[in-house]
Design a protein around this nucleic acid. Structure first.
Lengths: 334, 334
DNA sequence: TAGCATTGGTAAAACGATTGCTCAACACTT
DNA sequence: AAGTGTTGAGCAATCGTTTTACCAATGCTA
């Protein structure tokens, strides 16, 4: 455990000098000779500053917490990947936490935040589990950003253009000649989910197509729930020829149901999803989707936090980057 | 920023007392009255100990680093999930790092480890990128476990029964009447991958079936690579009626290739994979696989680290939990 | 009632790095 | 030669906890 004092002693200087060299401090001028000598010793001993001591003194930890609901959902992996890219711009590390409704980890995450263990906090689709953590973050003035949904009075909420996404997807189905268009929305009544549903409605409205409640199903953002929602929807409305599924995993589930039910995709039923994940490309037929800028969202969240835009900027921020329609094989002309 | 001294002052006691109460120390006896008073103040103020100060003093951070290659690969998600379950047993938090070959994060991870920022380190399929980090961990005596492959002279290596898995899968194909059985192995020459390939060979040997080099292809553990490996394999050996794919993502890729090439699965070609991930269940036909105890591996790694079994136990540890054959729809009788 | 153990607590030294302040030495300017 | 600036560096306080050592008061035993 070589410390800064060890280095200082071996170099015959004071710890301050070593510290300034390590941190590249401008204030303190250090002679080229001393610098070289110290740096050589640092190299030789493999000295690295103790992170606890450093963050105790400077109250910066170099850690950013990103809390998601379900780490196994590929959608979140994309957000994480984006956040990690952003983190490396600012020399930070992303700490990925998972806060399911059970909340086993929640109390640890809470302590970490309340104890100043992180420099910033990114919450994806925050539910009530994390209310205490949020409270702590606010009172400690730890920069905080919500992703996709959250309370705008507490911190900025970063969203993608979900309304447009819902509209684009639906419009695409309409353009392909579909008239009976169903939707599998995402449960939990989250803000982004509502927006996507609104997009569906708007597109139908503008095309003067009927909007019927019976064409709306809802699913949690996972495979099984998508499967069952599709089952219910088609048992009730066998006339539907195309569906919009508002999240990626449910879309894959819906696809599987249709396959199992003997309906061919896209010959009998067309399917379009929102959110692109690798998975959408891997299933057969490959899923046509509206690709959301998930990666960018993760990236941007980190940037907001690290550049101090979170305190001034308490508002809903919609990412510039527009959704992108990715055509694959699950939609056909009617 | 309420500190332990604040609490102590308000309660009219010394910080030591507060510390002992917070940490449930047995050594120091504290009267019920004092305890109640202090605890009430803690509640009221929402005091949480500063993690930096605490870890500076106690040299424990409560963080465990788990470094994987590709966080978007669902296989790793499973390991992470298991590790998180283990972590909550020991009041720790899992810090998931990603160390791709580019290694942007690597230097941060290194500093974190070298600086005593974590209590333990779990490395999955460690390549050379992390050699420095490993060195630091060793010299700092930070508990270290390798997953799936690593240098046994440095730290324990936790493996699943990969040989058995390869054998079981191949045997299953043999039992279904297949005689021309190909394999898509996993590249990078990793230990676990070799073992699975050996399992394939053993099963064929025991069944007196020929082992030909031309029936062996190799793929990186991702979709694209699996797709191409399958393409090459079948262009070279159209007589093959069944393949074993030694990792999950490649199996899905292989499935997609077969579909695109107009070969029906399982009517024309049977496919069995190793490693179960949600994905295997989601594709059509659903993939028959040998399910590996990935979750358990993550869990066990954490347990080894937190119970101090890493220093004494430098050996290859194969998980008790055996692979499990999960029958779905991608294999048929011949 | 002296001696000793127990109870309930305090004081202060770490832990390792950062940083504001001070200061000596030297170089210029006037 | 005095004054002023600059360069190179050291001192010591500080961040918030934990923990060892110590102590006063009380109770108990012989």
């Amino acid at each position: 455990m070589v410390t800064i004092t060890d280095i200082a002693n071996r170099a015959g200087v004071s710890p301050s000098v070593v510290s300034r060299i390590v941190n590249g401090d401008k204030k303190l001028r250090v002679s080229a000779a001393t610098r070289a000598r110290v740096q050589a010793i640092i190299e030789e001993t493999g000295y690295k500053p103790n992170v606890a001591a450093r963050s105790l003194r400077s109250s910066e930890t170099g850690l950013l917490a990103l809390v998601v609901h379900d780490i196994t959902n590929p959608v979140y992996s994309e957000i994480v990947a984006g956040a990690q890219a952003g983190a490396s711009e600012f020399d930070k590390i992303i700490l990925v936490g998972e806060a399911d409704s059970l909340g086993a980890n929640v109390s640890k995450i809470e302590s970490l935040i309340a104890g100043g263990g992180v420099d910033g906090l990114i919450l994806q689709g925050a539910g009530t589990e994390l209310d205490k953590a949020i409270e702590h973050a606010v009172s400690r003035k730890i920069p905080l950003v919500f992703l996709q949904s959250g309370d705008i009075n507490i911190a900025p909420v970063l969203r993608m253009d979900d309304l447009l996404a819902g509209k684009m997807a639906t419009q695409y189905l309409i353009d392909h000649g579909h008239k009976n268009i169903g939707v599998i929305s995402t449960k939990r009544n989250l803000q982004f989910s509502e927006a996507r549903l609104d997009g569906w409605k708007q597109a139908l409205l503008e095309a003067s197509l009927p909007i019927s409640e019976s064409a709306i199903a809802a699913a949690n953002p996972n495979y099984e729930s998508g499967y069952h929602a599709a089952k219910e929807l088609f048992e009730q409305r066998p006339d539907i020829t195309a569906i919009l599924v508002s999240n990626a995993m449910s879309a894959v589930g819906a696809l599987a149901y249709l396959n199992d039910a003997g309906k061919r995709v896209p010959e009998d039923v067309s399917v379009i999803g929102i959110n692109d994940v690798n998975l959408a490309e891997f299933v057969r037929p490959a899923l046509t989707v509206v690709k959301m800028p998930l990666r960018t969202m993760g990236l941007e969240a980190v940037r907001m936090i690290c550049s101090g835009k979170t305190s001034s900027n308490k508002k809903l921020e919609i990412l510039d980057q527009a959704p992108l329609l990715v055509e694959r094989s699950s939609v056909s002309k009617r």
